[in-house]
Design a protein around this nucleic acid. Structure first.
Lengths: 202, 202
DNA sequence: TGACTTATGGCACACTATGACAGAAAGGTT
DNA sequence: AACCTTTCTGTCATAGTGTGCCATAAGTCA
């Protein structure tokens, strides 16, 4: 990796960190792009070259998580029931989180508090994941040997999986270590698996 | 109801209709508030007195639906399992839709096509319903006799119910009458009820 | 009619976001 | 080293969203 790319990555993370701190400190709406850019000593125009929008900041991890999830889903054995496969994919995201650097963990925990404080950002993340949900529904439909355009159950399976993820990442207390987050999510997955009728997703 | 209020309601619906037509005709982003206001011969400033934002237009029905759902949920018998109660509440929304005027039905169908075309609006609606989901989770937790802040299952129940609603309202074909929408939603509800383990929500 | 309340329009303004262009920095080549 | 190419950055200009403020017009009630 060349100097150029390292510098870009550094700027991107600096922007992200500055933004998260400002958001949590003085509120999301009352933080302007100009302030964020100013904190990193970069022009506002440059900010928009790293993040397509202010909202996009809060979705950076989200995007990464979705890529991991899609990959994990594709690498699950074909015969596995779709919802089970999705839950394993979710565990893959979790394991990735668990193994992340302390800096990344810190960012994730801040982001989680931010999403808890500003629920409309959760909505943005749903909006962003609409496309991914479609792709996941395609993968599920393929497993079930049905047409994704026709089959409602495939969509329901994906929707329930994503709901499970969102509930698991909720933030009841504002403290919480990475271990606690991971444990909570594992509990939620088990709860979900116990709630559904065996074979419902075949 | 006085002349003033009737006039306001007329303006609100005129703005909504103009906006839906423009959105579907020339795209969501490329339609400006100025155009919408212009079509109704109202100043842009006035538009923002009827709808807090451009996005809010697409969430008008949504807001109404949520009120109906909360009311219906509260009027369900106490002993009924929470998810069953939520599904009945959803049926109440459906029955309200079924009994709506032809104008309202037309608006709803246009809106449904709009949400299908611009998934990010679905995200916005999730953002908007975050508060309602919290309140629903509170009602569910009360039924189950647990603390809504602690109990994940209550949140999962609400999340699955809302997912069921969203999947049911999806728009696979761009035609479709109100009857077809209602029937599809009923199918989805049955699918959901058949997917969950009996007693999972007690 | 007159006094009141409320809706509207016009204005200024802050913020987000994007396009166009020029200059600076990084990387590779000879 | 000097050179060229590619990529990143800053400045400027512009469109669009959303809000506060104040004067005016319209609806309401005595």
């Amino acid at each position: 990796m060349g100097l150029r790319e390292r510098k870009k990555e550094k700027t991107r993370l600096a922007l992200l960190d500055a933004a998260l701190d400002l958001f949590l400190e003085q509120g999301y709406e009352s933080t302007t792009v100009e302030q964020i850019a100013g904190a990193v000593e970069v022009s506002p125009r440059t900010f928009f070259r790293y993040f397509t929008s202010k909202d996009h900041l809060a979705l950076w991890f989200h995007d990464q998580g979705e890529e991991i999830m899609l990959d994990a889903m594709r690498s699950r054995p074909e015969g596995e029931p779709p919802f089970t496969a999705l839950m394993h994919a979710l565990r893959a995201v979790l394991s990735d989180l668990h193994d992340s650097t302390p800096e990344d963990s810190e960012r994730f925990l801040k982001l989680r508090r931010l999403l808890d404080k500003y629920p409309h950002l959760v909505g943005q993340s749903v909006a962003r994941s609409a496309e991914t949900e479609q792709r996941l529904a395609g993968l599920v439909a393929a497993r079930r040997g049905v047409d994704p355009g026709e089959d409602q159950l495939s969509h329901l399976i994906v929707a329930y999986a994503m709901s499970t993820m969102r509930v698991g990442f909720e933030c009841p207390r504002h403290d919480g270590t990475m271990q606690e987050v991971v444990r909570r999510m594992e509990e939620t997955i088990e709860l979900a698996e116990g709630s559904l009728r065996p074979g419902w997703d075949l």
